[in-house]
Design a protein around this nucleic acid. Structure first.
Length: 898
RNA sequence: GGUCGGCUAGCUCAGUUGGUUAGAGCGCUCGGUUCACAUCCGAGAGGUCAGGGGUUCAAGUCCCUUGCCGACCACCA
């Protein structure tokens, strides 16, 4: 064994070297030909817009934990990594960078911009991969994918063409969310709603026949230029006489029909609504219902354009705004009735923050019902499960209200839409134009044979390509070994804000193209917030770089923290102290291992089960093996139940509180036996090695570096734990669980603590002079061990006092029906003696015991309790009362005699 | 507006089907130079479980309600 172990575990010096060794040994590469059961995960591709933050780290760590766990349990594992081109987001980032240099993408031109993009992808993509490696992830880098890889681009085209040919993708004019800055449409999901304080304007529309007038309320008076109707509620008595007549639009003079539509709320504003189908989604729908004309008065730059009224090209948002001009004109003509302040939500582009202009535009749409229905069913049927469970409802509710998906974007960056037109006519899919979808670059028009063709200028929504991630990364649409072996995947770890943008769409496309679910479990990670409860984000500048934490505490510590918090189901405030705690824990493991390895040096260890069967073990040995069995069950159960937080906490508690603090302390005399063949040394070091071995295997998914470092020293073969493929190294319960023994040991430990406390006022050198005698005063369960010679000796040693047959009590403690007496110190004096500290301790014991008796007596005096509670609960209360009374008797006796 | 989540020790959080005296880590106080570890060891203080009401022999846990905080969804101009 390698005894060259520093006193402290220094992750910074070791982790990167270890990782490079694993990678060089090709340990992460999945084998589709393997006969082992398969476990596969696709890594959510991070956007290539910047570095990763702690949110990614927690999410990906959970995946690595499961990938490692399954691998240790004998599965052939594929964890497929990759990155996403993130069309609109990346284009925004790059445009901002260019702007900072005083340049624009237009100056560079398409080709020049593309070069900038490629450099960016190469540079940032590499940095992201480096971060992932620093975290110790055993992703299969040989299969690294990027959504702009040639093969992936082809898969995206294939998917589009199939949907188009099946009639699910169509082009048409509809009202869209237009971002005037990005110069692109965006989907409903990419609209970020923010509260604005605006003004609500009340405007009088006179009736065309001169008989009366309607007053409408609006926050966007400038859109009145494109009004094509006025709507009122059909049940509204006030306006009944106006319905079917014509109103006259102020300023412009156009006549507008007054229609009755249930959408209109009678109690909002005046109960009359100006209808602008060209610039408001709701008005658009009202217009559709009543056959209203659609007019446009705002162009794609956000400027007012109107046939009737053309102010000098004015952006609607800049001062003096078109809105102000319109209001001014209304006021001049005495059509402005009044104004009032008004708070409401306004849509912004979630990438650049610009206010969204709803307007009518030709776009590509993906019809949802046919894709949605099967995707609803697999979740309802439980074939796809969300963890935490409550997200099932979130998913289903959203799916129920799905509208067609706008999949086209007017960007420079992204997957070009694989639609081609022959040159017979201009325009899109209109009359006389041949349009078709094609995976390959077409040589000629399939209809008329014209050779000259051109491709649609639009690109696809980023999420259209991400939607194919689970299978397009494995080679789809071509058949592949990977698809056969690793699809569908087992689980998806992701963030809750992309359940709709991404998760739902993967389920839909997967069912459509693969005929199967993409994954069976969706793990929704907690959102990582800063100390003040603000979500970490790049724009807020409150993000924490995982590398900074790794540099300070090591990747193991960051990972263990992530495991603890990621799947709690609750958002977490970042608490650096927790990471530091796990760094200390890694050090604890390191040092416990040093002790155990030192003890086992030169010892021919034997299997723990064999020693147990041979009766060669002390109660301490049997106790820790019993606890280990319990731990294995707990950790395995927690991991299988998607609760890594419970698993890592259980390991930590066992390793620190039970194994290190009690077992190793108790085993030290055996460890220190000179003779390597000493039976006690052989037994205890065999048990300790067994425990350490089990621990580091269970720790491997969480803290792989410290785990492998210790494993190397346990296993001279030098093969990394994760490379163990012949048999599963995951520990199994030895069947040595003995809860009776655990109870007895608890009594012993309580006694040790009590004696330590009673002798607490003494310096340790004095404590060694104290004599200690144990006397039985009542028979209670669990005290047998403590009464035995072994128990007395163990108690004396762990408490640091001398065993004796009997002593004159200077201090007495009571534990489970046993009275433990401590003699007066040889020279009681300065600093107080045992008697002094004992009194306060005993007073506290007395108080607590009396309180407990009172409470239990009251409980048992309640007839309802005795009659209605479950019998075992009542019996328990009776037992407890008896115990407390026995204890009180002893305590009072000791107290008066002390 | 709708839906969902949260409110437990100074801080960050656990708390399974209701059942002894509600836990952990960090922080705090006191005490520790023994050969695994001061990144440590031992002991301790600290909570009317957001407020109110109800169900029950018994409520942090179940129900109602109020108040904050947060997330998501949403077509009220």
């Amino acid at each position: 064994m390698d005894m060259d172990m520093d006193k402290a575990w220094r992750p910074q010096e070791v982790e990167q070297r270890m990782y490079r060794e694993w990678e060089a040994a090709g340990l992460f590469t999945a084998d589709p030909k393997s006969r082992r059961p398969k476990f596969s995960v696709v890594m959510p591709p991070p956007n290539v817009t910047g570095e990763l933050h702690l949110g990614h780290a927690t999410n990906d760590t959970v995946q690595d934990i499961y990938v490692r766990y399954k691998r240790l349990r004998g599965y052939e594992v594929l964890w497929l990594p990759g990155t996403d081109h993130a069309a609109i987001a990346t284009q925004n980032v790059l445009e901002k960078r260019l702007a900072a240099e005083g340049r624009t993408k237009e100056q560079l031109g398409r080709a020049g911009f593309e070069k900038v993009v490629e450099e960016w992808y190469a540079q940032v993509g590499a940095r992201i991969v480096d971060q992932l490696k620093r975290l110790g992830y055993i992703a299969d880098w040989s299969r690294l994918r990027f959504t702009m890889d040639d093969a992936y681009v082809r898969a995206v085209r294939e998917a589009f063409v199939r949907l188009y040919d099946d009639g699910l993708i169509y082009r048409g004019p509809r009202i869209v969310n237009w971002c005037p800055r990005c110069q692109s449409s965006i989907s409903d999901l990419e609209v970020d709603w923010r509260e604005h304080m605006d003004t609500l304007y009340y405007i009088r529309y006179d009736m065309a026949d001169g008989d009366g007038a309607l007053t409408v309320a609006t926050v966007r008076p400038e859109t009145m230029l494109a009004d094509t109707g006025v709507a009122v509620n059909p049940d509204d008595e006030r306006y009944r006489r106006f319905v079917g007549r014509m109103a006259r639009l102020p300023i412009v003079g156009r006549e507008l029909p007054v229609v009755a539509d249930a959408y209109v709320k009678q109690d909002f504003g005046t109960g009359a609504l100006k209808v602008t189908p060209g610039h408001d989604p709701n008005d658009y729908e009202i217009g559709q219902r009543h056959g209203l004309e659609i007019l446009t008065c705002i162009d794609k730059a956000g400027n007012i354009v109107s046939d009737e009224w053309v102010p000098d090209e004015l952006r609607t948002r800049d001062a003096p705004t078109a809105r102000d001009r319109v209001v001014e004109m209304l006021r001049d003509r005495e059509h402005l009735v009044r104004t009032e302040p008004y708070a409401h939500e306004v849509g912004h582009c979630d990438r650049c923050g610009e206010v969204i202009e709803p307007l009518i535009d030709e776009q590509w749409w993906c019809a949802m019902p046919e894709l949605r229905d099967p995707a609803v069913k697999v979740v309802e049927d439980g074939r796809v499960e969300f963890v935490p469970r409550r997200y099932t409802k979130v998913y289903l509710d959203w799916m129920a209200g799905l509208r067609d998906w706008n999949v086209s974007r007017q960007l420079w960056l992204g997957h070009r839409i694989p639609i081609y037109y022959c040159d017979n006519a201009a325009g899109h899919d209109g009359a006389g134009v041949h349009a078709w979808a094609s995976v390959d670059e077409p040589e000629a028009c399939p209809v008329c044979g014209k050779v000259k063709t051109r491709q649609d200028p639009d690109v696809l929504d980023t999420w259209f390509s991400s939607a194919l991630w689970p299978f397009a990364t494995m080679g789809w649409p071509a058949p592949s070994e990977d698809l056969d072996a690793f699809f569908p995947t087992a689980m998806l770890g992701t963030a809750r804000e992309i359940i709709f943008l991404w998760v739902a769409r993967m389920i839909m496309t997967s069912l459509r193209f693969m005929g199967d679910i993409p994954f069976s479990t969706v793990l929704i990670n907690a959102v990582i917030q800063d100390r003040h409860g603000q979500r970490m984000s790049k724009s807020k500048g409150n993000g924490v770089d995982p590398l900074e934490m790794i540099d300070k505490y090591g990747a193991d510590a960051v990972r263990a923290w992530a495991a603890e918090v990621a799947l709690r189901g609750q958002d977490v405030r970042f608490d650096e102290a927790k990471i530091e705690g796990y760094k200390n824990f890694a050090n604890k493991i390191w040092n416990a291992s040093r002790l155990v390895l030192g003890a086992a040096e030169g010892v021919v260890t034997r299997p723990a089960a064999e020693l147990a069967a041979a009766g060669a073990l002390t109660p301490f040995d049997r106790w820790i093996l019993s606890r280990l069995d319990a731990l294995i069950d707990e950790v395995t159960g927690a991991l299988d139940g998607w609760d890594p937080g419970t698993a890592i906490e259980a390991i930590r508690r066992f390793a620190w509180d039970e194994f290190a603090d009690w077992y190793l302390e108790a085993a030290k005399p055996a460890f220190h036996a000179e003779d390597a063949a000493d039976p006690a040394r052989v037994a205890s070091s065999s048990v300790a090695v067994h425990v350490v071995r089990s621990l580091v295997v269970m720790l491997n998914p969480f803290t792989p570096f410290i785990s492998e470092a210790v494993w190397q020293r346990l296993d001279a073969g030098g093969e990394p734990l994760i490379a163990r493929r012949a048999e599963s190294p995951w520990p199994v319960s030895l069947g040595l669980r003995d809860e009776g023994l655990e109870t007895e040991m608890t009594v012993l430990f309580d006694a040790v603590k009590a004696v330590r406390e009673a002798a607490g006022g003494l310096r340790s050198s004095r404590r060694q002079d104290l004599g200690m005698a144990v006397r039985r005063v009542a028979a209670l369960p669990g005290q047998e061990l403590l009464e035995s010679d072994f128990g007395r000796a163990a108690l004396a040693r762990l408490a640091g006092v001398q065993p004796a047959e009997s002593v004159d009590a200077a201090a007495t403690v009571v534990v489970s029906g046993l009275e433990v007496r401590l003699s007066a110190p040889v020279a009681a004096g300065e600093g107080g003696g045992a008697g002094q500290t004992d009194r306060t301790g005993m007073e506290r014991q007395l108080e607590q015991t009396k309180a407990k008796i009172v409470a239990l007596e009251a409980r048992l005096a309640n007839d309802d309790f005795v009659a209605k509670a479950r019998p075992e609960v009542v019996q328990q209360a009776r037992d407890d009362l008896q115990t407390a009374r026995d204890r009180l008797v002893i305590l009072e006796e000791a107290f008066t005699s002390a």
